[in-house]
């Protein structure tokens, strides 16, 4: 599935990075805990989170995430948005709750990396 198909599936608004949505996605991870993402997040994942602070974009950038999806209609901070644009990190915002967003992606074959 491509990132633009993800956007459609999650009925998400594309906040930035429209031009990078043709990338293929295989894996995703979800957490509001940056500590967990840093410890268990794998490179190339799509990151779902309800934590829309600047730190979530910085963390996504550090772990080489491919895209950030904010759930519950959250939107990035101004600083977060600027960093995402600079680092070519697409950001999506979906109205769906975390559980539904994850469930939809999982049902379409987006998996976790490793066995956890």
């Amino acid at each position: 599935m491509t990132l633009s198909e993800v956007a459609k599936l999650l009925e998400a608004e594309v906040i930035c990075g429209e031009q990078y949505l043709d990338q293929e996605l295989e894996f995703a991870g979800a957490s509001d805990l940056m500590s967990d993402l840093l410890a268990f997040g794998q490179p190339g994942i799509l990151l779902l989170t309800g934590l829309a602070n600047t730190q979530s974009v910085r963390t996504a950038e550090i772990i080489d995430a491919k895209c950030v999806v904010y759930v519950r209609g959250r939107r990035p901070s101004q600083d977060g948005l600027e960093l995402a644009e600079k680092s070519k990190m697409p950001i999506l915002s979906t109205k769906f709750l975390m559980y539904k967003a994850c469930g939809l992606l999982y049902s379409r074959g987006i998996r976790v990396t490793g066995d956890r």
Partner: peptide, 15 residues
């Protein structure tokens, strides 16, 4: 609230 403080940082540096 900022998503930190799980006590994972130092072990993660070691890893």
């Amino acid at each position: 609230e900022m998503g930190f403080g799980a006590g994972m940082g130092l072990p993660n540096i070691k890893r």
